[in-house]
């Protein structure tokens, strides 16, 4: 099969995977603008190396792997910016409620943003994107057992954060409450 024969359906299969890919990006990155930049970079990278994709295998897993690698490589380039030492990430979350996802999910989004990236990606891949532990391990380039333990730690951390969230009645003052929470964990 030549490349031009393959191209139209490559595009179609890619389109089918995009809503989930974007949901992965937004939930992983937290900031919709940066997530969309990441999706765009992923589309271009994937297009440029489409010959390395084998039709019939999971386009979704392939794209997720590219996006994830791109995410970490951008994070390395940006250095500490992504670790959000000044809470800019937190303010952005507080300023744009409901911009992505329903308003009542804001507490959850905030809790998710407090997890380390490796735990966050693991619980998203397993709990929301619908990958098996084996597939998630392939995407992350680690052992299946590592994914399992990250998912467990992520789930426990989210439970802890969300129960604190509810007790304090997180409302409009979510930012200061999360700062207090971060301070307590530091």
């Amino acid at each position: 099969m030549t490349k031009s024969d393959q191209s139209p359906s490559f595009k179609r299969v890619m389109l089918e995977a995009l809503p989930s890919l974007r949901a992965f990006a937004v939930s992983l990155v937290g900031q919709p603008d940066r997530a969309d930049d990441l999706v765009q970079d992923t589309i271009m990278k994937a297009w440029a190396k489409q010959e390395s994709f084998t039709m019939g295998t999971s386009m979704k897993a392939w794209l997720f792997t590219i996006l994830r690698n791109e995410f970490y490589s951008q994070m390395r380039k940006r250095g500490r910016e992504v670790s959000d030492p000044d809470g800019t990430f937190t303010s952005q979350l507080a300023v744009h409620p409901g911009q992505y996802g329903a308003l009542d999910l804001q507490d959850f989004r905030e809790a998710l943003s407090q997890l380390p990236e490796d735990q966050r990606e693991a619980i998203i891949l397993i709990g929301a994107s619908g990958f098996s532990y084996e597939e998630a391990a392939n995407i992350c380039g680690c052992a299946t057992g590592t994914i399992k333990s990250r998912v467990n730690r992520a789930r426990n951390a989210l439970q802890d954060i969300l129960s604190i969230t509810n007790e304090n009645d997180f409302g409009p003052d979510a930012e200061s409450a999360s700062v207090i929470h971060r301070g307590a964990m530091a």
């Binding site: 389109l15 995009l18 809503p19 989930s20 974007r22 949901a23 937004v26 939930s27 969309d36 999706v39 765009q40 589309i43 992505y100 996802g101 329903a102 999910l105 959850f108 989004r109 998710l112 619980i123 998203i124 709990g127 929301a128 994107s129 789930r155 989210l158 969300l162």
Partner: peptide, 20 residues
């Protein structure tokens, strides 16, 4: 688990932005 899925699905349901 439910909140995570709810959150993810809500983003997924935004559809594909025109620019993509």
């Amino acid at each position: 688990s439910e909140k995570l899925r709810e959150y993810y699905v809500s983003i997924q349901n935004d559809g594909i932005p025109e620019k993509f």
